[in-house]
Every structure is written in C-alpha cells, then in structure tokens.
Computed example of a mutant assay.
Amino acid sequence: MKIASWNINSVRARLDIVERFLTAEQPDILCLQETKVVDDTFPADMFQRLGYVHRVLNGQRMHHGVAILSRLPLFEHGRHDWQDNGEARHVGVRLENGVRVENVYVPAGGDVPDRTVNPKFGQKLDFIGRMTRWSEELREPTLIVGDFNIAPLECDVWSHKALLDVVSHTPIEVAALAALQASHDWVDLGRRFIPAPARNFTWWSYRAKDWTANDRGRRLDHMWASPAVAATATAHRVHEDCRSWLRPSDHVPLVTEFDMAGVGL
C-alpha cells in the first residue's frame, strides 16, 4: 500500500501537476491539504478517471480544505474541529484493514510567536493541544499525515539559529509538537527513513526567485504512524523535484509504502 500526502495550495490551480504526480507515482491513497475549494466544486473528474473513485472531502474557500482520494474503499469518515472555529482542517477515514488515516492541516500561526499580540499563534498552539488530547485517547492503529506547519528538529530547517524566533521553529511550537508525538508514541516516518541530521525539507518559500539557489527549506510536512503501523512501513520518499514543476505548490509530496499483508493490527 502506498500513501501520499501533499499540501497542494489550491487543487484547482494545480490540477495538472497533481495528475502528473499521480500518473508517475501511482499511490493508492492521496491526502491533500489546503485544497481551497468547497466540496460541490471539487475537481473530481480527473481523480475518477485515474481510478480514485473513493473521495472524502472537507472543503472550504480561502486557505483551508482537506481531501482524501483513494483507489481503496474508505469507511467511517470523520472530522475534528481542532481549530475550534469551523475551519476545514481535518478529515479522517478507516481502511478495510482497520487502520485509520487522519489528514490534517495545522494553521500556520501568523508572523509573531507571541499569543498575547498574535491570536493566530495562540490558535495554533491550542490546535496542537486539542490534537494531543485526542491522541492520548487513541487506541486504533493510525497514520496521521499532513502539513503540521512545524519543523521540529534543528536539522529540519536551513538555519536553526536564524529561525529560532520564526514561527514554525520556535521552542514553544517544537515543545508542543513533541508532547503530541509522545502522547501516542508516534513514529516520525520521515526521520525513521531519513535519519537526522540528513537534509530533509518539504517546503520552500515562494519569495525566492530560485528556490534551489540558497535551499532555504523547512520540514513542515509529516507522516506519523502508530507503532504497529510504523512496523509495516517499508519505504519513504520526499518528492523534491515537484517543487520545480510548472506553477508548483510551495510544498512537495511525501510518499510512504507499507506492507500490511498478514500483519495483525
């Protein structure tokens, strides 16, 4: 089983590169974040044509929206409002083998890492806190993927020193994400297969005319697995080349392969 995750930054604007990626990579399941489209106008035809006949959408205009597209049946759809304001930032499903797949888009948190002057930063920390309380009670084998908007390790950013006070890599965010990870013994598949301190970025700002020139990346996108699910993971890749495609997202897709046949989950 091959599962992909990608913050696409508008699925309608980047439908061509999504099709290119799906045709080349052939994942069984694709989790998208920041789809920026309501469910009624989601561009389903291309996915249907490529065999992704199962869809679970949680759409919204502006900068939100998540979707799960699958060639495999999806059951027990669910949505958590971890933002606590109705923003469409999560959708989850159960697969036939009992594994849950949770697709999440954590808010960016604004520019100032201080909740007293920047409410968006407080909302981000509270979002992670609600996820943590959910995670503490989780008993099902689960894969959680998406844009977490936090680069936790020093080697997950182009310069730890330069970004210590920049939202996405501040100590308070890193601590909040560490608490979430500890709450379920989540296995960070990105660092299991690409161990620190190896370079592993998933996002580069649009502000740089040539994103490759200075390579100022951050690892904001993640795939975490329950220990039982992580034990079945066989490969993980970051498709960095997608950042150079025509009209790219500022994020690149992640893909993990699993061999769950015969494994008692």
Results as ranks from 00 to 15, higher is better:
K2R: 11
K2D: 06
I3S: 05
I8T: 02
N9K: 00
R12N: 09
L15W: 00
D16Y: 01
V18A: 12
E19F: 00
F21W: 00
T23S: 11
A24M: 00
E25A: 09
Q26F: 00
Q26R: 09
P27W: 04
D28T: 02
D28L: 03
I29A: 01
V37Y: 01
V38E: 12
T41R: 12
P43T: 01
A44R: 09
A44S: 11
D45H: 08
M46T: 11
F47W: 01
F47Y: 06
R49L: 05
R49Y: 02
G51F: 03
V53H: 04
R55P: 05
N58Y: 08
G59S: 07
G59I: 03
R61S: 13
G65F: 03
V66T: 09
A67T: 07
I68Y: 06
S70G: 06
E76S: 13
H77R: 15
H77Q: 15
G78K: 13
G78V: 02
H80R: 14
W82V: 02
N85K: 09
E87K: 14
R89W: 01
H90L: 04
V93M: 10
R94G: 06
R94K: 15
L95Q: 11
N97P: 02
N103K: 04
V104I: 13
G110H: 07
G110T: 03
V112R: 14
V112L: 11
R115A: 15
K120Q: 15
K124D: 13
L125T: 03
G129I: 02
M131W: 14
E137M: 08
L138G: 06
E140N: 11
E140A: 15
P141N: 08
T142G: 04
I144V: 14
I144H: 10
G146Q: 09
D147T: 05
I150D: 08
I150W: 11
L153Q: 14
W158A: 07
K161M: 05
K161E: 15
L163I: 02
L163D: 12
D165M: 10
D165S: 13
V166M: 12
V167T: 10
V167S: 07
V167C: 05
H169E: 09
T170R: 10
A175L: 11
A178T: 11
A179Q: 15
Q181E: 15
A182E: 15
D185N: 14
G190E: 13
R192Q: 15
R192T: 08
P197W: 13
F201H: 12
T202F: 06
T202V: 05
Y206H: 12
D210V: 06
W211R: 12
A213R: 13
A213S: 08
A213L: 13
D215Y: 05
R216C: 10
G217R: 00
D221T: 02
M223Y: 05
S226H: 10
V229Q: 06
A235W: 02
A235Y: 00
V238D: 07
C242K: 01
C242T: 15
S244E: 04
R247A: 10
S249F: 02
V252T: 10
P253A: 08
L254R: 02
V255M: 14
E257K: 04
E257N: 08
M260W: 14
G264N: 14
